[in-house]
Design a binder for these strands. Sequence first.
RNA 1: GGCCGGAUGCCCGAGUGGACUAAGGGAGCGGAUUGCAAAUCCGCGAUUCGUGGGUUCGAAUCCCACUCCGGCCUCCA
Length: 539
Amino acid sequence: MIIPEFYNTLTHHIAPLKPSRPGPDPQDPLNGAEITLYSCGPTVYDYAHIGNFRSFLFADLLRRYLEIRGAVVRQVMNMTDVGHMTDDQIADGAGRDKLELAVEKMKENKKTGRALVENPNDPFQVADFFIQAFQQDALTLRLQVVMDHHAAPEAEKENIMPRPTRHIGEFISLIRTLISRGHAYVGSDGVVYFDVGSFPDYGALSGNSVDQLAHGAGGRTNEQAAKRHPADFFLWKPDQKHIMRWPSPWGDGYPGWHVECSSMAMSILGESLDIHTGGEDNIFPHHECEIAQSQCATGRPFVHLWMHARHLMVNGEKMSKSKGNFFTIRDLVEKGYDPLVVRYALLAARYRETLNFTLKGLHEAAAAITTLRDLAEKLLLAVAGVDEAAGDGLPSTRTALSQLAQTLDPADLDMLTEFDRALAEDLNISAALAAVFIWAPPLLKQKTIGFPCARSALLALKRVDHVLQVAFPPVLPFDPAKLADIESLLAGRNAARAARDFAQSDAVRRQLLALGVELKDTPAGTTWRRCLAPAVPPA
RNA sequence: GGCCGGAUGCCCGAGUGGACUAAGGGAGCGGAUUGCAAAUCCGCGAUUCGUGGGUUCGAAUCCCACUCCGGCCUCCA
C-alpha cells in the first residue's frame, strides 16, 4: 500500500504520514489507525465566506481521504465565539473587538427593522446566530465534522465543535501553568504575556526569528514598556469594560486569541496531535503562538503535521467587500448554484495552490458533477433491477482498498488505485479526478450494464464519493411548491410537440430552464431534473 | 526590507530529467442522431510549457539571470 505523503509547513518537506496510533498492519499503518485532527474553524462575528470554506473543505477532503484508507479520524473544529481585535496594531489586544462590531451591526439592523437576534446587545446571542448560520452552510456543503456535530448527542457536541466561551477555566489553568514554568509573566500593565524569549523555537513554523520579528520592516510589533520583548503576545487581558469578560486571577477580562486552540485541542485530543490544519494566514502568528504555548506547557511536541491551505482569489483579485467580489455560500445559492457545485469548485483545485474562484468555474463544476450523477443514477437503477438490497449490502466506503481487490472489476480497481495514489501525493485532487473521468465515460456509454458490473462500479463510485460528496443521491430534491407549475408547463410543451409546434415547445423549455429545470426528451417520453447551476452562464 | 509560493492550450488545471506525439474538466469547432431542438455519441485542437542563457545524449521538469503575479511579516480561512 502506498503510504500518503503530505507537505508539512513546519519542516518545509513532504513526508510520509506516521500515525501516532497506527493500525495493525505495518505495510499499511493507516488502515485501522486512529488519527487526531484539529482544524481551525471560523470566527463567528459574520457569515463565513467561500474563502473560509475553502480551508474547511480542504480539511474535509483530507479527513475523508484518510477515512477511505481505513483510518478513524477524530476531528475537532473550533467555533471562535470570543471576539478578536480589529485594530490590533500591536500584539497587546488594543482596538475594537470584532464581536463588539458585530453587535453594533446587529443594533443597526434592529433599527432598520431587520432584527436577526432577540437582543442585539448580547454578544452571546450574536455569536449563536452566526454559529447557526455557519452550521447550516457547512451542512449543505457536507463538511463531515459539522455533520458529526449535528448528529451527536448534546453531551458530545462540545468535543467536536468546541466554543471557547465554554472553556475559559481551562484557558486560565493553561496560563497558570505557563506562568509557573517561567514562560509567561504579568506585565506592568497587568496583562499576562507569553515570553517568546523563553521558547527558542518561536518562529520555526513561519520562518521568522524572534530577532526579525522585533526589527522587521513591515512588522507591526513595537516597543512597549510593559513587555519584555516586542513579540510577546498577550494570554489574558484584564478589562473591566470589555463586552465579554470573565473572572480570573489577573482580574476580570478575556483570553488571548491563540490560547483557545492550544487549550481546546489538547484537552479534547491530547497533548500531541497528528495533524493540525488551517488557512495560510494562520501560520503566523496564530499557529506559531499555539506551538509556543502548548509545548511550553507540556514539554511535548504539540503537532506532528501542520497543513495549511492557500487562500483563494475571486476573479483574479483578493476577495474583499469593497471590490464586490465577496461571496458567501448563501449568496451563491441565491444566484441558483447548488451548494454541492460550490463544494466541488472549492475542492477540485489543489490545496497548496492559490485557487481563482469564478462563476464560470462554478459552471464547470456543475458540468463535471452532472457526469458523476448520471453515472450514479444509472448504476443504482441497474442494481435495483436485480436486488433491492444490493446497494445497501456493499462493503463500507471506509474499507481499505487492499480489502476490496477481490470484490471489484479490474477497471474499477484500477481507477480506485489511481484515485488513492493521487491523493496520497499530498492530496493531488486534480490527478485523482482525472482517474475518475477516464473511468466514468465508458460506463455511461454502455447501453445496458449487467448486475455484477454495476455492483462493482457502484461500490467504486461510492468510495470515490465518500471523499467528493457530490454524486449521491443522484436526484436532488426539488421545491414542492414549484412542482405544479412545472407539471403544467410540461403538459403544455408535450401538447405543442404533439402538434409539431417546435417554436412553442422550445419557448417552454427556456421557461423551465429559468425555473431551474432541465429537460431530456427520450423515446420513452420527456424526463426532467433540477439544474445544478443557473441557466445563463456568466459572461 | 525579510521569508514563502507561482507563471503550462481560449479558460481551469495535472505533469518536477527519457513511455510528453503534455492527463483531466470546461468552452469552441466539424460530423452522427434528432424536430434544421435539447440531451447523447464520434472526431479536432499546445511541435510547445513567462523571457534569455546554461547543464545534459536528452529539459515543461535541473542551474543562473530577468520579467510579471500572489501570500505572510501580530485582524484574517
